[in-house]
Amino acid sequence: MPEAAVAETAATAAAGAPLLSVRGLNAWYGESHILHGVDFDVAAGEVVTLLGRNGAGKTTTLRSIMGMVPRREGSILFEGEETVRLASNRIARRGIAYCPEERGIFASLDVDENLLLPPVVREGGLTVSQIFELFPNLQERRRSQGTKLSGGEQQMLAIGRILRTGARLLLLDEPTEGLAPVIVQQIGRTIAKLKVQGFTILLVEQNFRFAATVADRHYVIEHGRVADMIRNADLDANMDKLHDYLGV
């Protein structure tokens, strides 16, 4: 990571403890060593993206924070407390919620059951009617089988159901993947609303044009490490560098 970025990360850490602080995170799937010491911070109320090419380790970073990889080492502080050795259900109970890339809508549950499935872990989550205000399409399909929804509706359901739980940190893995532009815009507006309501969001994105519309800062992940950190305000100035990183 360039020195300026390191200094910036350290500065965020110094200015009051960040909500999430990842240090020296290593992760393995069986014999494959995927993450080689990932370091980054997310302050409360921020929207931060992880950018990078396919296979760089973005999804593995989210799954490691959530405790869903077979083996991980390093430090993951959430609200100042170490979570790297906790089982994923205990991590969720601390107030982190995860929306997987494949959305994870359950076929044997209808829309209502999918929406009500994640247990409430804290006070302060959205009510069901607030979720339907964000995603009116879902309300008309409450009795439908979860996987009978369109791709966009499934994504809304996947995001909607983790808003009920009272989790303050949302991990969203490529929420715009494969969706029509109008749906992508709707999800962008939703993320902006959630930020106003005080949610902290860590977003994995391939589409940095979309990321630029919602995020405060971007971390570039390369070969299982953080290669760079770019503030959203500085994005234009760093466009060439970013194209290099992402190979677009």
Partner: peptide, 24 residues
């Protein structure tokens, strides 16, 4: 029932149900 919806969901994808905070 709610318990049954955990059961059905965990039959499909236990890792995700656990990541929602259920002691699978």
């Amino acid at each position: 029932t709610k318990l049954g919806s955990y059961l059905r969901a965990a039959t499909e994808n236990p890792a995700l149900v656990q990541a929602f905070g259920v002691n699978v």
